[in-house]
Design a protein around this nucleic acid. Sequence first.
DNA 1: CCTGAAACGGACTGATGAGTCCGCTTACGT
DNA 2: ACGTAAGCGGACTCATCAGTCCGTTTCAGG
Lengths: 176, 176
Amino acid sequence: MTTELRADARRNLERVLDAATEAFAASGPDASIDDIARLAGVGHGTVCRRFPTKDDLIYAVIERHVAQMQAMAEEALESEDAGEAFFDFARQVAELSMSTPGLHRCVVHCGSKPGAAELDRLVAKIVSRAQAAGAVRADVQPVDVQLLVRSALTSAPAGQWRRYLDVVLDGLEFRP
Amino acid sequence: MTTELRADARRNLERVLDAATEAFAASGPDASIDDIARLAGVGHGTVCRRFPTKDDLIYAVIERHVAQMQAMAEEALESEDAGEAFFDFARQVAELSMSTPGLHRCVVHCGSKPGAAELDRLVAKIVSRAQAAGAVRADVQPVDVQLLVRSALTSAPAGQWRRYLDVVLDGLEFRP
DNA sequence: CCTGAAACGGACTGATGAGTCCGCTTACGT
DNA sequence: ACGTAAGCGGACTCATCAGTCCGTTTCAGG
């Protein structure tokens, strides 16, 4: 079987993923492969063999994050109150993202990779629904909402992001 | 006189500044010194001699920009209506910044260099005044306002920044 | 065991970009 | 015109980092 990994290979793979998670959480996508390899206690050749590209590694690390966000999005779409669903969703995602700012920067770095496309689709739905319900201003596109929220989170000094998010979300509210 | 430049030196200096302005406007602070030197038609040693550090060069290029912003700030401080002054000032600065997005990114890159400190002080005054007048929400600091506006401008896709700014400024308005 | 395939790791390549150095050129005062 | 100091430019150093290659080690099945 080509899909089976030797025991030591599997062990190293886990070490690499753990190390990468730690390194990316600490330094964002700028963490170097060498640092990660060192942290994992393996040669960097080993890292590059499993993940032909650095982005592959980043994506492997944030996959779980993205899946969580997707779950949140699906839940939001089931809520009755479209407006409340949107604002709650935004705060939930922010809370998750900012629990590890480095990983958030990795998500931003990846932009819309395969797999994130589905998430984008869901977000777009949440936003449109909230706009249709008159809870969110109509002169923005779903992608604008994503970018605005993202940039507020990214630009906020450590620990201050909640206030920044408040400003942007208030700005997104529909006002007669 | 040590402060006098030889004619050719002055000519080259101007060429370098022009080239740097063009390159930074096109590519932001990532424009390489080599590119700038090539564009100016000089060796890159010449660039590095005049500007020991790349940041020195960047700062020389944005100096005029910063000065213009400072003038706008001073004017804003003379206005009667503190709230209107703030919002107008924000839009003026945005208009200036985004007329050359690459330079805007340079300004962001420089953060608060010597010289920009004075501008920061003026901005802080404008914001506090608007807050005291009840036009701007009180739960943000002047620096937060700067970062929020900056990030909205930076994250907006080409040509879309006005809408992004609208959202943030609306979010900054005081609401009873 | 013992052997072949899988996995390892680090030396190597190649790209990039900032800043230094020094032999050559050129401006400009006399 | 000529000598000298200012100025030039590009080759060089140094650092960083992603990705490749191959000789060596280790696993695991027979």
